[in-house]
Design a binder for these strands. Sequence first.
DNA 1: TGTGTTCAGTTGTCTAGACAACTAGGTGCA
DNA 2: TGCACCTAGTTGTCTAGACAACTGAACACA
Lengths: 252, 252
Amino acid sequence: MALSALDRRSVIPLYYQIQQRLLDQIRSGALKSGEPVPSELEIAAGLGVSRMTARQALKSLCDLGITYTQRGKGTFVSANKLEKNIRQVLSFTEEMRTRGLRVDSKVLCFQAVPAVEEIAAALHAASGESLVKLHRIRLADSCPMGIECSYIPQRLCPDLLESFDASTSLYQTLSERYGIQMAFADEVIEAAMAGAQEARLLRIAKGSPVFIFTRVSCVQTGRPVEYVKSTYRADRYKIAHRLTRLNRELLA
Amino acid sequence: MALSALDRRSVIPLYYQIQQRLLDQIRSGALKSGEPVPSELEIAAGLGVSRMTARQALKSLCDLGITYTQRGKGTFVSANKLEKNIRQVLSFTEEMRTRGLRVDSKVLCFQAVPAVEEIAAALHAASGESLVKLHRIRLADSCPMGIECSYIPQRLCPDLLESFDASTSLYQTLSERYGIQMAFADEVIEAAMAGAQEARLLRIAKGSPVFIFTRVSCVQTGRPVEYVKSTYRADRYKIAHRLTRLNRELLA
DNA sequence: TGTGTTCAGTTGTCTAGACAACTAGGTGCA
DNA sequence: TGCACCTAGTTGTCTAGACAACTGAACACA
């Protein structure tokens, strides 16, 4: 094990301290792919915690896909590399910054509009309810990457129109100012050809391939809070993501 | 609660029996979105299990995104609908069948080939190692949807070339015959225009938008076992998926 | 009125143990 | 040799408690 003592006076839970130490060992290469992680009993004895606490630490690593267990044999480090560019619920700003690109925006429209039928339905809002519309061209290193158009119910962010600097991160503002944190998003992706207007804004040839994203972002409770329709140029933007097999019972 | 007694002699774990009952109540509408689920203590007292067992049942529902918890308040049903068409690690066959379409394939090529550099690297195989190549046109209700080309190391499925009916489900055969079960897959999606050959095979106009998928499927241990490059027509095929926010610590 | 306190209820964390199910390796017997 | 059995080690499940942290409502007091 070779792990130093835990801080029992810390507000950080013991299982979490253990999880972080194991994670450090994996990241540093002390524990390599396919190798066994210390067993529940080893951790419990070595750090002076109960087996259930050690188990909770190991379980959390499994849930993250870092390790896997084999009953009767042990817990092992997964071979999969933790890629940074797996897609998450991130704003364009966050997504590009994690790739080390300089982010910028050009605002085309920022105003309150009444909800049309389709968007109102997606946001569980009344048709005609006032939405804040934010229409932007997103630039990475000064190169136009895509066109984004977001709609958020105005009642959720009453004075956003006055206070928001539309060139900054919308998600950050929603989180800091209104306590709205996106937990997940359902998205439909289509491939299409750029129309004349889109091509002009993105500075590509008309008919070039583009991605069209229609995304509804939700908070933890499952309530939808944002509807986004985006068009991204496909020559500069690829989608990397991870597919997992869900619990089979859910589909039955 | 109004739940009947658990079967303590069953091989099915108690927490799982509890999870299924709660799931039934949610699916039947007895528990609606936003409503509180029975608390840990209510379940424990009502069904005569310990609190940790009740907790494990509730935790499993949270992990699936069915419910969410608020400390000091309770556990509540999420508002998100369980959509069937969220993408998973599914074969084309499985994916189309869940949508109720009749599936068919036309085999263009089914033979052993030596691994080229790029594919060998993705599969952690030696360059030149023998791979089973399966090149197919996928049809749904007799309409050509996409072109798929799979590569699997031959050592993992020694007599696949002789025994496999190439018009059936590859994933099902790998699972049943070789015990290979895909756990997750990393995929890169691009949007492009159909070339002359692709357009002919898919019976679309040259230059039509298509999706290009490059997928590496892995088993639980993280070992990659299949490399697939596919081209799907974008007029018939959309991608629906769910983005989640991963543990922030992983990215640091 | 309004403000702070108390209290019941909830989830989060942790303990110390128990038995079951499974794996892998070793042992002994035929 | 080959097979059955045993055993140590591991994860999976379950128990019966404990205290901490937080929420929301009821209550008492100024």
